[in-house]
Design a binder for these strands. Structure first.
Lengths: 190, 190
DNA sequence: CGCATTTAGTATCGAGTCGATACTAATCGG
DNA sequence: CCGATTAGTATCGACTCGATACTAAATGCG
């Protein structure tokens, strides 16, 4: 029974957020999925700003995402930059307009206000929901897209000096907070 | 910052649930919104099983919901029963087939398993999310659709004997657990 | 009562998402 | 060097959703 109620709650919250996103995007002629794409591109790292990574993040097919990106590019909210190493790959970079739209639209004002009324700043809620999300993602064989600094390949070399164990490249403090498609959570008890 | 992370979390959970609903509905030729409609109709009370109530619940327009209901009726998952008092109103009743589809599809198996791995049974999570949902609903001037027994018009007359302060009708214990479109939360400190 | 207003629900249309399929081009692997 | 894989695009059809317009029943106010 508690499972059913929790499911209903999450479903309803998801619907509400979508409705708000729809309203927020309407002002710019954007759909919910467009805002979600922009938000992802704003918070992912330089290894993860590609159509393929966005496809995995959104859980859609690559054809669908390709259309989404076409529209965003036409509107001038992002631009495509060919990868210098692998010429099949393009990188998606937000334009100033894209950043401006996001800043104006997300998260919705109503959400911020509703959240401010919650007790305790929501750290516990964030931790619980993260756990739930991880469980669902592993169950669906999906990637976690967590912050770089919480990955098991993240190496600390000194104060403010980090390195990625996969690419072997150095990482800044800002890098460590961005989402990565290669992210794997640190195994419990490490 | 915490607000942004929480927003992203809820958005992602919502997307995941939609994806799972899409997969679950595919087996019956149903879309996510169809399963959501069926689930609502299964858990709402006799005052709230109308197209108008469902429209408010889902946050869509009545035209959209009308189409959804047409499809569900054609598939034999629900039937329409004219109201005896107000001849503009119809009541939506799940058929046996409708109930069977729901039982098979919702909540998704993966969700149940993921939740079972969470610490502490989720009562705290349920309470927190309910609070967040209520806050968002009041901010959007939406109805809460809470369980009848948690409404400020719910009257206790004895063990297992209740009454609705609006309709003045008696309510059973089962009635008290169903969702109502007229639901208003008990004001804090009552 | 009588008539305008409101409410419940339906019908239709167009814009847009999304998955499926098929395709090109580049890279990888033996 | 050539088949297999991977990144991305193009096109099509099914479907959702909002907007608009509509009917029918109830309500309210003079």
């Amino acid at each position: 029974m508690a499972v059913d109620r929790l499911y209903a709650l999450l479903e309803r919250l998801g619907n509400l957020l979508r409705t708000e996103e729809r309203a927020a995007g309407l002002r710019h002629g954007l759909q919910p999925v467009h805002l979600q794409a922009l938000r992802y591109l704003q918070s992912c790292n330089r290894y993860s700003n590609t159509p393929a990574a966005l496809t995995e993040y959104l859980g859609l097919t690559k054809g669908t995402v390709s259309q989404t990106l076409l529209l965003l590019e036409e509107k001038g909210l992002l631009r495509k930059q060919p990868d210098t190493e692998d010429r099949r790959v393009v990188h998606l970079l937000l334009t100033e307009d894209g950043r401006a739209v996001l800043k104006e639209a997300l998260p919705p004002e109503l959400f911020k206000r509703a959240l401010s009324g919650l007790p305790g700043e929501g750290e516990v809620l964030e931790a619980t929901l993260t756990g739930l999300l991880r469980a669902l993602q592993t169950a669906n064989a999906q990637r976690s897209f967590g912050a770089c600094g919480t990955c098991k390949h993240f190496q600390r070399e000194g104060p403010g000096r980090f390195r990625c164990g996969i690419t072997k490249e150095p990482l800044s403090r800002e890098d460590s907070q961005l989402l990565c498609r290669e992210h794997e959570a640190v195994p419990p008890g490490a």
